[in-house]
């Protein structure tokens, strides 16, 4: 399957931004299940400073705001050819060692809530167990846009019983790691069958399963990622893989407009 993707992020500010930087993780890489035919990121009212590969093998671009900018646009677009591998990504490749993915983070830290949930599910770290885990999360945490806060941890999500794909993924990562299974956060695009225009990227999880390597779990949709899924960035949690993280001086009164277009060619 071939997808054409356009992802435009537009910021407007009431007050000018006197200085600001943004780290972008918006560039997908070619891998066994996806071939990048073309991809590019444009910046308006800002400048690309540099790019490098981080420890999760993500392409990172650093951009700066134009002096006293009151707007900034970042537009990524390209075409990707996809193959269905039933969610299997394959053996671990560096540069980060596999054990790193057993590390919990502030967002995935397992405390009493996660532990109790795991006991109830009774899943083990095998492929079956992980699928059980994913569906248990899906039924315990209702998908509801706006119910959660981006800073919520896995514990917060379980307690509230509602959230979005990011929250589902954090709970999964927390549980998998608590079981000793290396797991990571994936941010990417998902082609929807009923429409092309979306307002957010998607997130799912990958766990490292003995014999198969990395395997994807889209908890929110209750399926394994297939040829509609474009992997863009990975990390230990949302913070590592988020498409944009930045800081700025000034720029009060931010207005954000995100428009994502994912269409089959």
């Amino acid at each position: 399957m071939r997808l054409k993707i356009q992802h435009a992020t537009e910021y407007r500010f009431d007050q000018p931004v006197s200085y600001g930087l943004q780290q972008l993780r918006k560039t997908p890489k070619t891998s066994p299940q996806q071939h990048i035919i073309s991809w590019q990121t444009r910046v308006e009212n800002g400048q690309k400073e540099l790019s490098f590969e981080d420890h999760f093998h993500n392409t990172v671009e650093l951009i700066s705001f134009a002096r006293n900018a009151t707007a900034l646009s970042v537009i990524s677009e390209g075409e990707v050819e996809l193959t269905d591998t039933s969610g299997v990504i394959g053996p671990h490749r560096g540069p980060a060692p596999l054990w790193l993915f057993r590390r919990q983070t502030g967002l995935t830290q397992a405390k009493s809530g996660v532990r109790a949930f795991l006991r109830d599910v009774g899943a083990d770290g095998g492929l079956e167990g992980l699928h059980d885990l994913a569906s248990a999360i899906r039924s315990s945490v209702r998908y509801e846009i706006g119910a959660s806060h981006p800073g919520w941890s896995a514990e917060d999500v379980l307690e509230a019983g509602a959230g979005v794909c990011q929250d589902h993924t954090h709970v999964f990562l927390s549980c998998a790691r608590e079981l000793g299974v290396p797991a990571r956060y994936v941010s990417g695009y998902l082609m929807l069958d009923d429409r092309t225009v979306q307002d957010a990227m998607h997130a799912w999880a990958e766990a490292h399963v003995e014999g198969l390597g990395w395997v994807g779990f889209d908890i929110s949709n209750g399926i394994s990622p297939d040829a509609r899924y474009v992997r863009v960035a990975t990390g230990l949690d949302y913070g590592d893989a988020s498409p944009v993280s930045g800081l700025r001086v000034g720029g009060d009164g931010e207005l954000l407009d995100v428009r994502i277009d994912v269409a089959q060619q």
Partner: peptide, 12 residues
């Protein structure tokens, strides 16, 4: 210095 790690990782 915001971004110095990025500059470092880019080898600059």
């Amino acid at each position: 210095v915001p971004g110095i790690m990025d500059v470092y990782r880019a080898g600059n």
